[in-house]
Design a binder for these strands. Sequence first.
DNA 1: AAATGTCTGTTCAACTTCTGTACAATGAAC
DNA 2: GTTCATTGTACAGAAGTTGAACAGACATTT
Lengths: 293, 293
Amino acid sequence: MNLMEAASGYLQIGELSRRSGVSTELLRAWERRYGLLRPARSEGGFRLYSPQDERRVTVMRNHLERGLSAAQAARLTLEEAERRPDEAPALARGIESLRDALDALDETAAHTALDRLLSDFSVETVLGEVVLPYLHELGERWARGEASVADEHFASNLLRGRLLGLARGWDGGSGPRALLACAPGEQHDLALIVFGLVLRELGWRITFLGPDTPLDTLDDATRTLEPAAVVIAASSPERIAGDEVSLRKLARNAPLWIAGAGASSVVGKKTGARQLDGDPLGAAALVARAQRE
Amino acid sequence: MNLMEAASGYLQIGELSRRSGVSTELLRAWERRYGLLRPARSEGGFRLYSPQDERRVTVMRNHLERGLSAAQAARLTLEEAERRPDEAPALARGIESLRDALDALDETAAHTALDRLLSDFSVETVLGEVVLPYLHELGERWARGEASVADEHFASNLLRGRLLGLARGWDGGSGPRALLACAPGEQHDLALIVFGLVLRELGWRITFLGPDTPLDTLDDATRTLEPAAVVIAASSPERIAGDEVSLRKLARNAPLWIAGAGASSVVGKKTGARQLDGDPLGAAALVARAQRE
DNA sequence: AAATGTCTGTTCAACTTCTGTACAATGAAC
DNA sequence: GTTCATTGTACAGAAGTTGAACAGACATTT
């Protein structure tokens, strides 16, 4: 790295190319064709890329990897860069007021914050950018002993109410049906509700049996409804670990998925169940893709 | 995948084909034959599919799998897409479907839209972000001659019914009492009902005397109920302009507020009445604050 | 001065998509 | 049985898109 780069944090095209894995020719082409980058220039005319430019290249590559055409990827990258100063703070503010309200056990303020968010952003955005991050954070604070049981209950109940409100009518329509339930003893249903909402957006009909569902109840429902997917949420292995036989029976009647930290112990050939990890958004996409095949 | 990004990411036909499992030829055929998709075009003429298009393909496939013919499936898909225009923030979507329903004099659809809104949002949000803006817009269209008397009556009556439904039990509880009435000759009570609902949310008990209330009736009620506030709605000055004496008498027995465009001519020291201007939400907050002092 | 890196502008080849037409399989209508 | 519309698929030739390459001039470093 030369002096200019070291001092200012600016990169020449070669170094940016090495870091990003995009050839120098292509970096110039993206600049010329889509205006993706606006590097400053040295006295001699060399391009000097800022850290923001570097991030744009990363974002551009991510979009390309998802299958967008170069032109679309560039447009989207620029749009996001444009929008970031506007939308991101609004979302951040929303998250903050929601957290403050929930921490203060202030129901009215929490609803107001959610009203605000849902009026400004789509349901998917609110779920993915606010609700899930908040639940994650709450879980971590609870694990560290920073959040009380009361906090956790209050927030869960309030959010559950709102999410179930959004879920109204989610079993209507004509798409494939998914049967959702929490494993026996499992009380945490929020992430599963979010998962159902996202799957609903993908055109599915959702039947939700709620927390603490006995496996034979689930089996009955499976025979009746003949769903295209059955999803069981289990936050720890012991919820279902002893019940491989029931699971195997379930998996014979419908594609069976186990979600949550308790999944890994029972998935596989023994039970015929498949694992759903990661966030509810990605999980929903995965289930939908599997159904199409 | 970040759903917010996906919201504006346009796909070319090849990528949509890979994701949906429908061949490119067939995608084009569905567009040509049934108008199933309406992709935008790039400068060079390439089809650019929106996430809504992607969802339509999913729905179309669902219908086909259930044995419908392609033509029927497409027709159904288009109908459903018409009914469920997603992606927009929930509140904006709600406003639009309410307006569409009221403009079409479609009572069922209007109630459905309101149900949806009230299940997704708090009463105050629905009032402030939907009902009041709609009434305002309707008033303007009426002034420009774009809305007929029938439109205005239909919308008013339907909304009045819903609002009074929300108002059920609003005189119960233990908070301060407000006495609400429209001035003599005044028929427009909707904004006053909204005002009452918001005040109710703030913990007040509401007594509502309705449109066209004689001032001496109001005076009787004031002596009986001893309210913490009396609010008179008057959309034009002549409703009350000649009655300063009655107003003065009223104001001696309870804090008196005059709301609406007719207020300014009579407020002040002469009558002891105070003005309430602006929107009902702000007005309610103002009355509540005044009472606390 | 030599070596290396970067500049602009142009060209190219691989790939994708476009439009339009054609065709085979299916099943309903006559 | 024949006719006909429906529907998924196939192909040809033109055009759009995009990553890569090259040439000749200039910049920077050693």
